[in-house]
Design a protein around this nucleic acid. Structure first.
Lengths: 92, 92
DNA sequence: TTGATAGGCAAGCTGCTGCTTGCATATACT
DNA sequence: AGTATATGCAAGCAGCAGCTTGCCTATCAA
């Protein structure tokens, strides 16, 4: 999970999914190319998505030949709990 | 900064500094060895601390031949701002 | 001044990460 | 059935990250 957000391309993917949910691999690819000048191949992005999904940061939903991806920022709360919530302790 | 927390040893260092501030390199080394079974050399930990300091997550204070390290979790707020604060917007 | 302690610098090695390439599978359309 | 589209699998490769090793500097104590 920490490794997942260590890569700049993967962070851009999370940004993209934050802005717009339910995107397919090809949508993400084209939007990354258009708006972030990322020239990676489809397979590269696919592998990034696999890793993000394994980290629990992305959830996917299959629909026919399409696979829609959405962001799940919940695992990131670990960071808050671990290092940021030591003075302002609230309900988790 | 994201790369800084991608390494498990560096995360342990942050944990250690969260628990107890103002530690020297040797203190951190011995505590990592004792309590977390980390067998890395002094130089390895030194390099980790350099990276953490470059990321702004650790601040240091020189005192004679000692160098005291403390945690600064502020940069981690970026993560909250970027992906977690999109529904509950509060003053930071 | 000499020795011991705390830390810094730099080169070299190894394993892993991210990427590409090539092929395979599955679904939809006609 | 045949073709196009959307995605998956796996091998191979280049670059870098983390570690070690060896030596150097600086401060303190005797």
């Amino acid at each position: 999970m920490f490794r997942a957000i260590a890569d700049p391309t993967r962070r851009k993917i999370l940004d993209e999914l934050t802005e717009r949910d339910d995107q397919t691999l090809f949508e993400i690819c084209s939007r990354l190319t258009m708006r972030h000048q990322i020239t990676s191949s489809r397979q590269a992005i696919s592998q990034h998505l696999e890793l993000l999904e394994a980290a629990g940061l992305v959830v996917s939903r299959r629909e026919g030949r399409y696979k829609f991806h959405s962001i799940n920022p919940a695992p990131l709360e670990q960071i808050v709990e671990r290092w940021l919530n030591h003075r302002t302790k609230e309900s988790s």
